[in-house]
Design a protein around this nucleic acid. Sequence first.
DNA 1: CGAGAAATGGGCCGAATGACCTATACGGGC
DNA 2: GCCCGTATAGGTCATTCGGCCCATTTCTCG
Lengths: 209, 209
Amino acid sequence: MLADDHRMLREGLRRSMTDQGFDIVGEARDGDEAIRLAEELQPEVILMDVTMPEVDGVEATRQIKISYPGIAIVMLTMHADQEVLAAAIRAGASGYLVKDCSTDEIATAIRTVVRGETVLSPQLAASMLEEVRKLEEPSPDEERVITKREEEVLQLIANGCSTPEVAERLFISQKTVKNHLASIYQKLEARDRTQAVLQAVRMGIIHLE
Amino acid sequence: MLADDHRMLREGLRRSMTDQGFDIVGEARDGDEAIRLAEELQPEVILMDVTMPEVDGVEATRQIKISYPGIAIVMLTMHADQEVLAAAIRAGASGYLVKDCSTDEIATAIRTVVRGETVLSPQLAASMLEEVRKLEEPSPDEERVITKREEEVLQLIANGCSTPEVAERLFISQKTVKNHLASIYQKLEARDRTQAVLQAVRMGIIHLE
DNA sequence: CGAGAAATGGGCCGAATGACCTATACGGGC
DNA sequence: GCCCGTATAGGTCATTCGGCCCATTTCTCG
């Protein structure tokens, strides 16, 4: 079964999947219709676009999987987006392909998911890995709140240095360290070094070693 | 090409993959041999066990992919392990299957990876998602080092309380709070509250709100 | 050229902090 | 019954910490 809001894409998919030996039992133009048709037609596999009017593909997937866990759902998307990918698989999707893949690839994916396996486009597998890898730097830093020097001070404090030790390592006086800290407290709305460091970790400014 | 240190498994794979229409051009018994044979035979796909003598499958994958990015490598493993999965895909593996999957599933996986896509066993896709989801609770707490009371103190400190405030909230004296902190410092090898809280966060004892 | 930010530094002060010592009470386990 | 860990609490002390006042230099940007 197909679920996509673009007629041209649906027709293209229908033709190529039919050529590949699949039967298209129905087509939905939005998430609501996908849910209704899935119930009515009980397809083996649904090729579902992520972005659709009314109800998006992820939500439709969630609802269909609740009622009919046996229906395998392959999400199609225009762009490799880790967030959406995670949401889609959490919703129960068995596959996630970017739309520029070949009809052969889609056919292979369908054959894969009906066997209970999961298929990801390579770009998405990569981006998923990125997400796993970066447990740090979650924020691309909309704007640099903390200056370079302040960041150095913060990092040293996080690494276990006291004020005198930071001063020693940076070759500045304790007073300057305190001044930097005071500035940091203001910017991070912290009232002591502990809160400042925690806030900095949350914001991805500094990293736990 | 096959790479596995168990003869029985290699022979089983060779037979079933041959039945599925694939040609097995070579078999390796360890990671070193896999690297040498991959270079010599230039297989389209390698089915590679993760655990092998000499050089493990992940490292062999990395080295083969550096020299021959065109060779697709499907990792086989006994257990669903997120860490290894991440390492494997970072090393360049195109697929990651648990060994209890059917020969049909392996065949489908091979056909999928030669098309440039990525295949994950559903258990692994699930565990990968878990890893993404749980940005907290990374350690299952091998043993409870910190007592319940100490944990309460730590969490309050992490939430921004000073010693007097912790005392107030827990209805104990400041002195007791300090005693708990001193005990915590010993156990976490920290010398101040900042280090204690950071260490506790690293160990998953407390959570950033 | 002047405004403003960043980085450096000083002094003062009260509160918080951490190290060191002690002590009592309540559990459970050997 | 005794030991040990946990939780409670006290005291002393030097150090650190953070708030508040201030200043100088350098640099960039408009």
